[in-house]
Design a protein around this nucleic acid. Structure first.
Length: 508
RNA sequence: CGCGGGGUGGAGCAGCCGGGUAGCUCGCAAGGCUCAUAACCUUGAGGUCGGCGGUUCAAAUCCGCCCCCCGCAACCA
């Protein structure tokens, strides 16, 4: 049995989760569930990044002590994942001792290998960004922080540096040899372009406690804490036993997929691979950066006040419909536009009209005509089913593996539409008047089999709906496996019809 | 000449790598049906594939030039 280790970024806890966080975790959840459907052993890691001055300040701003504050925000994240049916296997917090231990081990090891050194640093520091700038960088930016354009502070202090520069050549050749390491392709090009146009400077990985107090204490020098990103990235290995549980680490590492947002591409595509290489640890197989949701064509931002709250959406449309919208509307590399109109439109046409109505009308006929008991009769696969089911079976996994969720769903819904058409073409209401009961039963059996198969394919996207379908077909959840996507697996159906899966949403 | 995306019927997108009748969803129009969530099914209207030029028997797809839009600040997936 093969394994699949998938990760979200660890979310920064200076504020509560919004739709973007939900999107990232839902993508990973869809992948994780898809892999489980295929019988793979999955380890789905998520968690929180809790150090750094910004967290400290956020805690102060809300009048809480830091550890109470982070606990509370972490609670918000965990609750959201529960409500969104995010099936992670482990939740790591960078404030956990186990993690901090590993961070210290990593630094000690890199130091012993000669990749960390202490140096006096002269330059400029941007407090809010926790970033250093050389005089040239500040000058180019016009005398301010090159990132945020705010005032910088001239500083001269000693810090610890990680020798990124030493590995620049290695990283370039690694990327050249592994063109699928960073996905999608545009992001790969971006990283390559960045490396071609810039010289990698060594990375400052310590912060004096006088300035940043909330962090992992630097192992070589108690007057410093570890730079928050250096601490954070290590979660991907500390969570699976690096430096503490060799068997576990061997079982799961390397990660098969680091899913990230495009904003943190450089940390994952440059710092992280070099850190691992310097440690002598193998690299993750794929780093995939997804796009961003715009809201009504505008960038989502706190300052614009247009942050979409996932809880409001769960309340309005439900978890499955929200997951479906986010995964169906755009494929993960691209940016997308979020609007309530688009959400409602998508739900009504795909979920209520096509899928929900198909299930409802089919079950209704099964009850009306056969009192809910439908048995296989000459259950050969209708020709029109075969025509769409074959490409579905053939390409579903391929699309899922490449995170092309819209393409996978298109295939599934093409089959849903074929079944709706099959009902029109067969005209069961006419057959009923002619007392052609055995033909109707054959027809209904075909539909029930088709719906059963659809429920399996939809499970990664809408786990609760898939389970509800199986339940109404009188089947057990264990049948959620790609192996079950074959025709005529069941002999009898005992229908237990419930309310429509997805009620239409009326807009006022 | 900074870097990276993008410009395809009313809207949103796929197709472009490996040229060969322009595809999907929504919307719109007409019709059909009634098992069904005013749902479903059929048919139709609607595109000089940003512009110009080149390669080719043939270009949305390859090459060159040009125009326009977005990101490459912060909060932040």
């Amino acid at each position: 049995m093969s394994k699949f280790y998938i990760t979200t970024p660890i979310y920064y806890v200076n504020a509560s989760p919004h739709i973007g966080h939900a999107y990232t975790s839902i993508i990973c959840d869809c992948m994780a569930r898809f892999k489980r459907l295929g019988g793979e052993q999955v380890y789905y890691l998520t968690g929180t990044d809790e150090h750094g001055e910004k967290v400290n300040q956020a805690a102060k701003a809300s009048g809480e002590d830091v550890s109470g504050f982070v606990d509370r925000v972490v609670g918000n994240f965990k609750k959201l994942w529960k409500d969104l049916d995010v099936s992670y296997d482990f939740f790591i917090r960078t404030t956990q001792n186990e993690h901090k231990e590993v961070v210290r081990k990593v630094i000690t090891l890199l130091h012993s290998k000669g990749d960390i050194y202490k140096a006096k640093y002269q330059g400029f520091y941007c407090m809010p960004c926790e970033s250093f700038w050389t005089p040239t960088q500040v000058k180019d930016a016009g005398g301010v922080c090159a990132l945020c354009k705010r005032e910088v502070e001239k500083i001269e202090e000693e810090n610890y540096f990680f020798k990124l520069s030493k590995y620049e050549g290695w990283l370039k050749s690694y990327l050249k040899k592994n063109p699928s390491f960073i996905q999608p392709k545009t992001r790969y090009n971006e990283v390559k372009g960045f490396l071609d146009n810039n010289v990698l400077a060594d990375l400052c990985i310590s912060r004096p406690k006088s300035r940043v107090s909330w962090g992992v204490e630097f192992p070589l020098d108690a007057s410093y804490v570890v730079y928050v990103w250096f601490d954070a990235l290590i979660n991907y290995i500390s969570a699976v036993g690096y430096g503490s549980d060799d068997d576990k680490f061997k079982q799961w590492w390397p990660a098969d997929l680091h899913l990230i947002g495009k904003d943190i591409l450089r940390h994952h595509a440059i710092f992280w691979p070099v850190m691992l290489h310097a440690l002598g640890v193998s690299l993750p197989r794929v780093i995939f950066a997804h796009g961003w949701w715009k809201v009504e064509e505008e960038k989502m931002s706190k300052s614009k006040g247009n942050i979409v709250n996932p809880y409001t959406l769960i309340k309005d449309v439900g978890t499955d419909a929200l997951r479906y919208f986010l995964l169906r509307e755009i494929s993960p590399g691209a940016d997308g536009n979020f609007s309530y109109k688009a959400v409602v439109n998508r739900i009504n046409s795909d979920l209520a009209n096509d899928l929900g109505n198909l299930v409802y009308r089919t079950l209704n006929m099964a009850q009306k005509y056969f009192d809910g008991k439908v048995t296989a009769r000459k259950c050969s696969l209708p020709a029109q089913f075969k025509k769409t089911l074959a490409p579905l079976a053939q390409n579903y996994a391929k699309y899922m593996d490449s995170l092309n969720f819209p393409a996978a769903l298109d295939l599934v819904f093409a089959f849903v539409r074929v079944m709706n058409k099959y009902i029109e073409d067969t005209k069961p209401w006419a057959l009923w008047k002619e007392k052609e009961t055995s033909r109707i039963e054959e027809f209904l059996y075909a539909l029930l089999e088709g719906i059963r198969i659809v429920s399996v394919y939809l499970y990664p996207f809408m786990p609760a709906a898939a389970q509800a379908i199986l339940r109404q077909l009188g089947l057990k959840e264990e049948l959620l496996s790609l192996r079950e996507c074959k025709w005529a697996q069941k002999e009898t159906y005992s229908i237990k019809k419930e309310k429509p899966l997805f009620p239409r949403i009326d807009v006022d």
